[in-house]
Every structure is written in C-alpha cells, then in structure tokens.
Design a protein around this nucleic acid. Structure first.
Lengths: 219, 219
DNA sequence: GTTTGTATTAAACGATCGTTTGAATGTCAA
DNA sequence: TTGACATTCAAACGATCGTTTAATACAAAC
C-alpha cells in the first residue's frame, strides 16, 4: 500500500522535490539531490514514482493542486464572512488569499515558480495547471463579479480585467526580491498590507472603468 | 580578434543559445545542443566564451540588454511623436513598445522567459537585469509621469502603480498561450490591439485613483 | 615560401546523469 | 516459525554531461 499519510518516504520525496523543482527547474535537479534531501535511498524515486518525470507530475497532482484548492477555500471563507460583499471585497479576498492567507512565503514562492515554469516551458503538467485551477478560478471569479456590473457588460473586457488582477497578484508574489530591491523597502507584513491595499485600489478603479463599456462598442 | 560583426560562429552561438536557454532554462540545454543548432563544433563554446555559464552571461550582455534598449528607444520615439503627451500616452507607449514594436513575438517570448527565469532562480545575470534595465526604466517612467500628478503624491503609491503596469504588460506578453486558451481567442493583431487598449484603460483608472493620495495618508 | 596567430575540428577525458538490479531488510498474517 | 509482501539498500549499468587536448585549416604579414 502507498497510503500518503503513512508512507513517510513518499511524502518526503514529494515535499523535497517540490522545493527543488520550484527553485531550480526540472532538469537542474538530480534524482540524487532529491533523495538526499529527503533522507532516502537513490532508488526511492523509481520505486515510488516509476521515474523522475512521474515524480514531477505527482508534485503537481498531490502538492500544487491541493494548495491551489487551499487558496480557493480561504477566498470563499473570507467572502462568506462579509455580508453582501461588493467587488472590492472580492478583489481583496483574492489578493489576501494568495498573498497572505493559506500559504507561507516559502510555499507561495514554490507555488508560483512551479506555475510560471510550466507556462514558460510546458510539459504534461500544464494541462493540470490550466484546466484544474486557472480556468475554473477564472469562471468562478467572473460569475461572482458579473452581477454587480451592468447586464450588457463586455465579457472580454471583464475577463481581461480578471487577468490583469491576477497578473498583479502573481507579480507581487513572484518578484518580491526585485520589488524590494528597486523600492529599497523590506517586504515586511506592513508593506505587504500596503501592497494589497494598492492592488485592491488599482484593480477597483480599473474594473469601474469598464462599467460603461458594453459589447457593441468593442466590435 | 573577436569582432562580433565578422565572427559568424560567435554570433550564431549567441543567437541559438538565447533561444534554447529561454525555452528550456540553463541546465536543460546542453552545449552539444547549442553547437549543433549553431552549426558549429562542440568545442566552439569553450573557445569563444570559455565555458557554458559565460555564454549564458554573454547572452544577457550582448542580446538581452540591447533588446531592452530597443524597447526604450521605441518608447521614446513613440512619445516624441506626441505633442505634450499625457499619462495615458505614456502607458500606451510602454505597452506598445513592449507588446508590438521593436520585437517579434518570438523575440518577446525569449526576452521575457530569460528575465523570469532569472527572477525565479537568480544567477550572476540577475544584477544585469535589475541594475541595467529594470531600475533605470522604473526611474525614467516615474519621473515622466510625476509632473502630471499632484506635487505631494505618495511616491510609494506611484512606484507600486508602475510595478502593476509592468506586471500586466509582462503577463500578457508571457502568458499569451494561457490567455488564448482560457478566453478561446486567438492572439491575432486585432486582439492584441484590444489587449493594449485594456491595459491603458485599466492602468489609467488605477493611476488616477492614487491622485488624491498623499504621503501623510500612508503613515 | 615561411611564419604567425586565429579558428575549427575530431577525439577523448573524468564526472554525473537517470535507471536497473538483486540482495537485504522490516512487517504482519497464518 | 514460516511465508508473503512491501520497502530499503548498495552497487552497478549505459548514456550523456561540460571540458580539454592536440592536430589541422586558413588567413594575413613578412
């Protein structure tokens, strides 16, 4: 049996593999490096996962997707605590769920790096990323925001706005070292909170700007 | 002599290395793959660049930075053709320079991938990326936009806004396949033009939103 | 024609890669 | 205690890695 909750070696391999793959990329990490970090034998990966690529895919299936689910749960819980949440509440919920709640800084770095690496050089795992997380999230957010906008709102404009919001959140999560370096400002909790305020404000003004744009204008 | 304009092998190596490093990352590309793509001998990299890592750094120095300079030149030319350009003109200039002008789609993909790989897993090249391109560009854009804003504008808010604009532009350049896939929309020139319109509109509303925020509010 | 220096080539180097093997463990039911 | 099964282990496999070497090709200078 390979019950993940009891099989320590398998779990340790997944955990260490995720860290290393996220930091260095698939090719730059050796089986020996992973098994050493997981305090296991060299042959452990081939025994538990068949081969290195299958371990990589398992990282997405068993670590990446569940963490994305964690972000979604945090988002829903955050929203459920508001009475009649408006669009600003939703944007803040997304940004907070991703940049503060449900993940440590290290986990967030892992999560984003794995995703961006897949987008830059897709493997089989990109289908998991897009179909199991990105697309469902887009649809969910879009349908949450839509009721608060005019009925004849341009769907394309709305979807592009959601992409823009995501882009800001991902960028500020991903490029923290560069932001810190350019702004000469530590990424401490106070600053992070101001960044979230900025994202919410910036995005809200952006979304409000499309309120008056309708389908027929964009043809 | 190693005059780049006459030494064909050296140039071919740089060109092919950039493509491959951008696509797969440093570790995933072998010197045999690069030299084969450049129609040169296996030992050519070590002869012209010393070793593989030095070739990687040379790609940034001799290909990446010059292309970033090309974007800046396009940006300045675009602005110089406007009389008394406003902030919207500037945002459109940046977005157009990066997403349309001065680069082919392939070159843009290369450019962004190399940069994001460095941010995700920095090597010596990250200093080139940040100090020679990102920081100067931030300062230049900030000082161009500032005159059109209130004098007591919060500098942090303005810088965060610039990061947000950059994040949108980079994201739409980087994640084109995902955007296409999720929106079921080809990334043809018409759509690209609508994306730029969206970025300009979204960003302008975002920037205007900070106009009334001043230094003392953020303490 | 000879010399000098640059550029290219084929071949080989030791090191490390992912994977396989077969024996040695540990575990639990019969 | 025995047998069956899951897991771990050390050792080795062939393949590929980045790099080095020494011989060669080729041009311009004398």
């Amino acid at each position: 049996m390979t019950n993940p909750s009891t099989d320590n070696t398998r779990d340790r391999l997944l955990i260490q593999a995720e860290q290393l793959f996220a930091q260095k990329g698939f090719a730059a990490v050796s089986v020996r490096e992973i098994t050493a970090a997981a305090d296991s034998n060299l042959a452990a990966i081939n025994y538990h996962f068949g081969n290195k690529m299958n371990l990589y895919l398992s990282v997405f299936k068993e670590r990446w997707v569940p963490r994305a689910d964690g972000v979604r749960k945090f988002f829903r819980k955050y929203l459920s605590e508001k009475n009649d949440p408006d669009t600003a509440d939703m944007v803040r919920a997304i940004a907070t769920a991703f940049l503060v709640g449900s993940m440590t800084d290290n986990e967030r770095q892992c999560h984003i790096n794995l995703m961006l690496r897949e987008l830059a050089h897709p493997t089989e795992a990109v289908n998991i990323v897009v179909e199991e997380v990105i697309r469902p999230m887009h649809i969910a957010v879009r349908e949450l925001i839509r009721p608060s906008l005019p009925e004849n709102i341009c769907l394309e404009q709305l979807t592009l706005s959601i992409f823009s919001i995501i882009s800001m959140i991902v960028y500020f999560g991903f490029a923290q070292p560069v932001v810190s370096r350019v702004m000469n400002q530590e990424f401490d909790p106070q600053f992070k909170s101001r960044v979230i305020d900025h994202i919410v404000s910036f995005a809200m003004n952006g979304i409000n700007g499309i309120k008056n744009r309708t389908e027929e204008e964009t043809v």
